[in-house]
């Protein structure tokens, strides 16, 4: 049996590039089909509501806006020790409380085995639904990065 994999898009779609994670998940859903053990979830800015979803998956690929100090539109891949720092809020601009969520899951012995963060440095965080053109142009690259992660986990996504 295949280990369940979660692709989790995070961010607030009301705040321009802050919603990039959700937009990438939407693009993945529109362009690709995945085997049943892969779940695509638009997590928005939810916290405790996602405990159950995360607990029921073995591997997690998070897509989010990331502030590393690098120039806007820089693409980022984080794994290993960089992931806890990300979830503590130093790099993620919204206050989703995922660090608490993951700590809670560890306490329960239900944390994911692997977590990778795929991100993009935002170019604008105004109150509007549309991404900035610069970051919108990066969506195909981010989609490719997520597909690569899935392939590394043994999944072969098929184009729609």
């Amino acid at each position: 049996m295949n280990s369940p994999i979660l692709v989790l898009g995070l961010g607030n779609i009301l705040m321009q590039d802050e919603g990039i994670g959700v937009r990438v998940v939407e693009a993945l859903e529109q362009g690709w089909t995945f085997p049943d053990h892969v779940s695509l979830v638009d997590g928005g800015t939810c916290g405790m509501d996602m405990l159950d979803i995360i607990a029921s998956h073995r591997h997690m690929v998070v897509v989010d806006a990331v502030k590393t100090g690098a120039p806007p539109t820089t693409l980022v891949r984080l794994e290993g020790d960089a992931v806890p720092a990300f979830f503590k809020g130093k790099l993620s601009p919204h206050q989703v409380g995922l660090s608490d969520l993951l700590a809670t899951l560890r306490l329960q012995g239900e944390g994911p085995e692997s977590t990778v963060v795929i991100g993009c440095v935002p170019a604008g965080m105004r109150i509007t639904l549309d991404l900035t053109p610069e970051v919108a142009a990066k969506v195909p690259d981010l989609v490719r990065m997520v597909l690569d992660e899935l392939r590394a986990l043994g999944v072969e996504p098929a184009p729609r």
Binding site: L14, G44, C46, G97
Partner: peptide
């Protein structure tokens, strides 16, 4: 659809 994105707790 938009108002439920105001908050991550009280969607």
């Amino acid at each position: 659809v938009f108002t439920q994105r105001i908050c991550g707790v009280c969607t």
